[in-house]
Design a protein around this nucleic acid. Structure first.
Lengths: 340, 340
DNA sequence: ACTAGATGCTCAAACGTTAGAGCAATGATC
DNA sequence: GATCATTGCTCTAACGTTTGAGCATCTAGT
């Protein structure tokens, strides 16, 4: 005998029967409608409590055309691209704000590569959620554009300059990269730099690379590009054969760590001979030896803001062009790997 | 002008009107019912495609009494207790299996301390999800017991010996701790050990402590208990004033790292003078210097298994007493911190 | 030609909730 | 004592989907 404890509990009708009034009266009583007598209200409350009544959200959603839930969409591509930790910070922020708004959070990862964003659009159109947060996807991913155009409440996490009509929350990657690189040059007198980039079909990787070269040009030092993919392994590989450098700026901490490890295997000392700076500060950079100087990205705060904006959107608050794109400040966290 | 693109799309009725048949016929056509003509079916498909029809899940859930979604419940207490990384592994496993079952995943964190498990029970009873995975909660948290007793489909992640009627997926923490401790004694000849425990209102912390003392007794060496709370800081604090030891077994990697860092600040060398072993292997232990020998916990696989069992439960597959509690094997990953 | 069965659809009802219209009482006002 | 507002509830319909029963129409078998 496997089953069927009628797990789903009491309904309004059960309460109505018990109290001896109509279903609508019960509904109104529970919502504290002024036209229901105090006597009745308290009886309804009592019985509801006894029966362990919990409103059925399908019924409610159907009637109200509102799900009281938001989706956190994670393009599968970025699941590889971003480390686990980034996502945790995002999740923490999203759930916190969702809780404040009495809403649930759905995690929407891609079932398989071929479906692309279609799966997400289905989730959104199904009425299961009222809106969604999309974490940075590849610039080549035109599904994001489709989602934006669909007009469903949507907030993007990251920068999408090619989607001006979207709502987004991000940081100024280019300026941040400029600052990090300048730190190597100005504070540590480094003159022969390399940048280990992320995958260049991601906006963050593009911007960080551009910021690096901005700094190279501004300070008139030498700088070269090494291609990475945000993975530790790619950071290590990038510096495999590199010679005559005294500074590395990696587009994230994983690659900085990979590079640092490999350089030390090659008997090059960090930070004595080579200064290294990473990006993100999602956890890794603090625990390595030496610890990694990095550009701190306030991921949780970005997520909170994005989610707050999403709830604004859902409740119909107008968003002006001016505040469609929010940029949060970042700050350089100096640690051992640069020589500070 | 803020709003109202009638974001929620076409319904069965729209298709019915367009094709010129009844709503039920459309529904049947879309579900490929044999009693609907091929001609009609293809017309329905075409129009559905054109209109971008997506079934409304509230309507469906209401009718089918099934949400096609599962919840991942994270007691807020354990959000502090477990590092971010553990949760990521779990989430990866859960979403993968949920995707395979065409189900969505809801993240349910606790809105505030006072509500306790009531919030989760609400989520489950609301019909929003068909079942839930609960990650290890404190043994003192009787809300878990309530949830188990409620009879709703539920799989616990971790060990709950005091809830024999539950379904759970875990590891043998005690045996694993015994093995880790024995490694310090047998392989590295350590004779004066300490155990930095997790918070002892968590079953995993209790079992790991017990396994430690099992090994101490079996091998007849000295062993002392230092209380921690699974945080890096607590690991550091634990070994602040400790003297005359040559081995540390920490109940997780964060504490092992904290302890290692503090011991080295105290000019004690790891692993030359003191061997350290941690627990979990969720990421941290691999990247420190020295890297930390640890007991690898297959969190993602546990999560997958738990979720698969949950879907069994939801679909009414009977679970016998014999396979109610699954225990997965763990393995010691030897790294630098023990001297290997 | 008449019945039996297959085929292709329509109809009604149900899932649980809620908002608005409606309808009896009661109490107040002139 | 008729009028009117207030109070406290009931009734109806609707959200979108699905399913079993029902009802024509056509085909095949006698």
């Amino acid at each position: 005998m496997a089953s069927s404890t009628k797990a789903v509990g009491a309904t309004l009708r059960d309460i109505a029967k018990e109290v001896g009034i109509s279903v609508s009266a019960v509904s109104m009583a529970l919502r504290d409608h002024p036209r229901i007598g105090p006597e009745t209200k308290s009886r309804v409350m009592t019985v509801a409590e006894q029966l362990g009544y919990v409103p059925n959200s399908a019924g409610r959603a159907l009637r109200a055309r509102k799900a009281d839930a938001v989706a956190l969409i994670v393009p599968n591509t970025s699941q590889h691209v971003f480390g686990h930790t980034y996502f945790m910070h995002v999740l923490t922020g999203v759930t916190a704000v969702a809780n404040d708004n009495d809403a649930q959070v759905m995690i929407s990862t891609n079932p398989d590569e071929s479906h692309g964003m279609a799966a997400y659009e289905r989730v959104m159109r199904s009425g299961r959620v009222d809106g969604a947060i999309v974490t940075s996807a590849a610039v080549t991913d035109n599904n994001v554009e489709r989602l934006v155009r669909s007009g469903l409440p949507l907030v993007l996490l990251g920068n999408f300059p090619y989607l001006p009509n979207s709502i987004s929350v991000g940081i100024d990657d280019r300026a941040a990269a400029f600052e990090a690189t300048s730190h190597l040059i100005e504070v540590h007198q480094r003159r022969a730099l390399v940048h280990i980039s992320g995958p260049l079909d991601h906006q963050s990787a593009i911007d960080r690379r551009d910021g690096f070269f901005d700094a190279i040009q501004t300070h008139d030092v030498t700088g070269h590009l090494l291609l990475g993919d945000y993975s530790e392994e790619s950071g290590a590989r990038a510096v495999e054969d590199v010679t005559d450098i005294d500074g590395v700026f990696a587009a994230n901490d994983e690659m900085a760590f990979g590079a640092m490890t490999r350089l030390r295997e090659r008997e090059l000392t960090v930070p004595a001979e080579i200064s290294i700076i990473g990006f993100d500060d999602f956890g890794l950079s603090r625990v390595t030896t030496p610890s990694i100087t990095t550009m701190h990205v306030p991921a949780e705060r970005m997520a909170r803001l994005a989610t707050e904006r999403l709830f604004d959107l859902v409740s119909g608050v107008a968003v002006t062009q001016a505040d469609a794109h929010v940029t949060l400040p970042v700050n350089l966290v100096t640690r051992g790997s640069c020589g500070c």
